[in-house]
Amino acid sequence: MNGRLETATVPAGMTLLEFLRGRLCLVGTKEGCGIGECGACTVLLDGKPVTACLVLAVEADGGAVDTIEGEARDGELSALQKAFIEAGAIQCGFCTPGMIMSARGLLRRIPNPTDDEIVEAMAGNLCRCTGYEAILEAVRVAAQAKAVPHAGQMVAGQSAGGSGSQGGRLSSPRVPGEGGGRG
């Protein structure tokens, strides 16, 4: 759990989300819809973004779980968190932990994502304050700041203000069949 070993006995019917919030008091992960539609409860399970409301706690046994609480290190926000602030990608903040964990999963998998890849990776996270453009920009900024995988120290002091300079990355060739037309 965020790099620490946690041992617990849980009922089979407890979701990973309930375990995180109720047992470990890691309440950064939010419950929105509870049925995998909104993405607010996105965490990384073995490095991959999943909705914690649709995973049983027992299914995570022996696995590695990363939540928003693991982003900041030694009191310093991660480059991804800083990028969300710089880009103004936060309004009410409810969707933000899930957004950041989806972005974290993307940047671990693809350090320099195209815009289509960012959209596809973030499309499972809903924001009711309609801040999508700023959120996508935050992910671009974080990618440019080389926020991978935990780059708090790597980018310390580096300006994350690279907005507007990503125009050349929109059409890198990809394997055919990429679901880029969906959004």
């Binding site: 995998g36 909705t51 649709l54």
Partner: peptide
Amino acid sequence: LAQAAASIATYQLRNR
């Protein structure tokens, strides 16, 4: 088949 799989749900759900 890849087009059909890519059209299903969200990235998070496709991981499960």
